[in-house]
Simulated assay, not measured.
Amino acid sequence: MDENIYQIAEQIVQLHQKAYEVYLPLVEEVCSRTVSEDELSHLLDYLLDFACDEKMLRLYKRVCRRYLDVYPGCIKDYIEAYREMWEEEGTYGENC
């Protein structure tokens, strides 16, 4: 049973690494231009799913910082969504 848990944990690590590799160029591209609020929301929805991983959280924050002045209401909603989904009282980014 311990071996199964180890294998599952390793698969999760690999999944997070793959997600980072896929989303990094998308984040770079979206941050290099101004996108519509719909396109921004679409990307942030996907990033939010992986924001428990530190590298993915950095991508999420990067996009939020880039668009804070452009779509402040949208970014506020995504910051709250992150907090509701991943933060527990007394912790930050340690919920995966």
Results as ranks from 00 to 15, higher is better:
Met1Tyr: 09
Asp2Pro: 03
Asp2Cys: 11
Asn4Gly: 06
Asn4Pro: 00
Ile5Cys: 04
Tyr6Arg: 11
Tyr6Pro: 00
Gln7Tyr: 10
Ile8Phe: 15
Ala9Thr: 13
Ala9Ser: 11
Glu10Lys: 15
Ile12Asp: 08
Gln14Arg: 15
Gln14Phe: 09
Leu15His: 13
His16Cys: 12
His16Gly: 06
Lys18Trp: 07
Tyr20Arg: 08
Val22Met: 03
Val22Ala: 02
Tyr23Leu: 10
Tyr23Val: 02
Leu24Ile: 10
Leu24Glu: 11
Leu26Arg: 14
Leu26Ala: 02
Val27Gln: 00
Glu28Val: 00
Glu28Arg: 11
Val30Gln: 05
Ser32Gln: 08
Ser32Glu: 09
Ser36Glu: 11
Glu39Asp: 15
His42Asp: 15
His42Glu: 09
Asp45Met: 03
Leu48Cys: 12
Asp49Arg: 07
Phe50Pro: 03
Ala51Lys: 02
Cys52Val: 13
Cys52Arg: 02
Asp53Ala: 14
Asp53Trp: 08
Glu54Phe: 05
Glu54Leu: 04
Met56Leu: 13
Leu57Lys: 06
Leu59Phe: 05
Leu59Cys: 07
Leu59His: 08
Tyr60Gln: 01
Tyr60Thr: 03
Tyr60Asp: 01
Lys61Cys: 08
Arg62Pro: 04
Arg62Ser: 08
Arg65Phe: 11
Tyr67Gly: 00
Tyr67Pro: 02
Leu68Glu: 13
Leu68Thr: 11
Leu68Lys: 14
Asp69Gln: 09
Asp69Asn: 01
Tyr71Arg: 00
Tyr71Gly: 02
Pro72Tyr: 06
Pro72Thr: 01
Pro72Leu: 00
Lys76Phe: 07
Lys76Gly: 07
Asp77Met: 11
Asp77Ile: 10
Asp77Ser: 15
Ile79Pro: 00
Ala81Trp: 04
Tyr82Glu: 03
Arg83Pro: 00
Glu84Cys: 03
Trp86Gln: 01
Trp86Asp: 01
Glu87Arg: 06
Glu89Val: 07
Gly90Pro: 04
Gly90Trp: 04
Gly90Lys: 01
Thr91Gly: 02
Thr91Phe: 09
Tyr92Phe: 15
Gly93Asn: 06
Gly93Tyr: 04
Asn95Ile: 01
Asn95His: 14
Cys96Asp: 03
